[in-house]
Design a protein around this nucleic acid. Structure first.
Lengths: 346, 346
DNA sequence: CTCAATCATGGAAACGTTTCCAAGAATAGC
DNA sequence: GCTATTCTTGGAAACGTTTCCATGATTGAG
């Protein structure tokens, strides 16, 4: 009887509900969890009290007892990168609908933050994990990940023992490079993310493949992986343009990097498509509305997020079965605009 | 003794640690929580076992007992909006550093998702809440919020009883409008977000104020709040341009909306700055690199996120004191580029 | 009409921590 | 050298659920 009259400043517990309704705690739990074997009258009586008291179950207690936290971890290097934020947005929508809450962990490319997040995932007994593209040479992180027995999906990333959802960056890189080669370009610069991140790795592979198929050598000096942040692309582009054998075409990421590249072109007095051809990867307002508009390799970011979320939910439901870990690929699409031309005759 | 030998597939608990170290559970807890009154030898012995077993405390149990979840809620309408994602990114960094995990709730402007998220905040006993700009006419949400006794910060939003961090959208709207009026414009269209969202409300207020100070009437037909998503600005701009008294200047948001506006101008054969002047709110790559570059009202998004996070942390630490709920304003800055001119003589 | 099966409910033991309290050991004050 | 304090540790009671088990009531089969 001690808790029949709940003190006003304390949130009501399931015992308060049980006491006020004159039933047992277990009945309240059963009703709240829609279990069978509960009479309609009991249900009505309990729900009335629940509403009156504004009872809301304490999810930590639920998690402790039932071993499900209804929480999904989402590890991403940089949520302010529009490529990621669009995928996260779509995934969150899908997971929210299924009753899960997303826990965000932005790693900012630091391995120490990655391992810290994995630790948080373990302590909080999260139910699943979405792992976005990141540096796959981080060994501490990889080994921390290996100890994690948890449904997991890689997004533009390979995760041992887990399926991944990816855009076909290799195919995209191939298509774009082949297109430029077809126009007659022989020195094509590729500005992409760090080499150890899957999309970049794949992109470079596609770039090489296109060269090989055309019987051309690859000049690795033209492949310039960019470190994150700042407008580092700027100096790389300047260096290339001012070098002995400047490129006649540039492939760059469509995010901030494209803006840096355009700055670099401008400050070297070089115009596209007349002086140099330009293709970007990842469609943006800037690519669409620059003058001339920039030909772009694009793919469906939201769809990747959605598929990743759905696949994760399936794996959570199916438990240990469904060990199909084949990657799911989404196609890229090349949008031709007006930023490319045949290279200048010497 | 029953649990001295932990079964391999179960995660070790604090009892396992205690048993293996031959000490009491409470000692382990004390050591782990860095409490005073623990001898160095005990500390060393326990930590050795903790490391060997790979023990990680179950945060649900901690939350249940200690009434702190180390979790911050983050309610935002749309995480894929770059304005929001940059603020969230900065806030997350600050909160992560303090040991908190961010729980993301994207509401997509739906009140039902807002109230659902508040419910999640309550059930999970989150320690604080970051509330980003949203429709302030949502009454169910507002009343749900009122029952929430929890440190809370509004970001570009007013929250009763809580401080807010905001850009000075009113001042910014005023400055931009005054600038255009100064150039001679008398019909200035304002395309902004929904009227019930604070930044828009304030912006419109600044816009009116500039008109009033100049002794001009405000034609409310020129103020066009835009519903979210899609390129709705497109049809509004077309309608204005084709109307009887088209505007000679347009103020628009710098996000996707700017692209829509540019499309609308293009498809009506109208060029800026010669035919019409253009200013956007919120700096983007597009605004910087469009030709001509677009004059922009900007402010420090990351700083807003950081300040919001820090203020929230203070409030969590200070408990019920520190009831200073005055809003913190950040200034806007007008960047003059090449998108404005005096209006055409008739 | 009886016995077995099912239904509806209650009681109590978990889940894995933290924290309160008690108690013995060590230290300090005089 | 004795008492009053402070240190160090252990035991046990919470925290608020879910779930297992037991029990009485109801139903169904023959």
């Amino acid at each position: 009887m001690a808790r029949t009259q709940p003190t006003s400043f304390l949130r009501p517990t399931i015992r308060d509900v049980a006491a006020q309704a004159g039933v047992s705690v277990s009945s309240v739990s059963r009703v709240l969890n829609r279990e069978p074997h509960t009479s309609p009258e009991l249900h009505a009586r309990i729900m009335r009290v629940v509403d009156r008291l504004g009872f809301e179950p304490h999810s930590a207690a639920q998690a402790l007892r039932s071993r499900a936290s209804n929480t999904i971890g989402c590890m991403v290097s940089d949520i302010s990168n529009p490529l990621y934020s669009e995928m996260v947005n779509a995934a969150e929508e899908e997971l929210q609908r299924a009753g899960y809450v997303l826990m965000l962990g932005a790693t900012r490319h630091a391995e120490e933050r990655e391992t810290a997040f994995i630790s948080a995932v373990r302590r909080r007994r999260m139910d699943g994990l979405l792992l976005f593209a990141g540096d796959n040479t981080h060994k501490d992180f990889t080994s921390a990940l290996a100890t994690l027995d948890l449904p997991c999906i890689g997004i533009d990333r390979e995760v041992p023992g887990a399926p991944s959802v990816r855009a076909d960056h290799r195919g995209g890189g191939f298509e774009v490079t082949r297109y430029l080669i077809g126009l007659g370009h022989r020195r094509i610069a590729l500005l992409t993310g760090p080499a150890a991140v899957l999309p970049s790795t794949e992109r470079v592979a596609g770039y090489r493949q296109a060269h090989i198929e055309a019987g051309l050598d690859v000049d690795l000096d033209l492949v310039r992986p960019q470190v994150h942040g700042s407008g580092i692309a700027f100096s790389d582009v300047c260096q290339l343009l001012q070098g002995p054998a400047p490129p006649t075409a540039i492939i760059t990421l469509g995010t901030h990097m494209l803006a840096s590249v355009m700055d670099a072109l401008a400050s070297n007095g070089i115009r596209y498509p007349s002086d140099i051809s330009l293709v970007c990867i990842g469609d943006t307002d800037l690519a669409r509305h620059a003058t001339p508009a920039i030909s772009t390799l694009t793919w469906d970011l939201s769809e990747i997020g959605r598929i990743a979320a759905k696949t994760l939910l399936e794996r959570i439901r199916d438990g240990d079965q469904a060990q199909d870990t084949r990657p799911i690929y989404l196609p890229t699409r090349f949008i031709l605009r007006h930023s490319c031309a045949e290279p200048r005759a010497k």
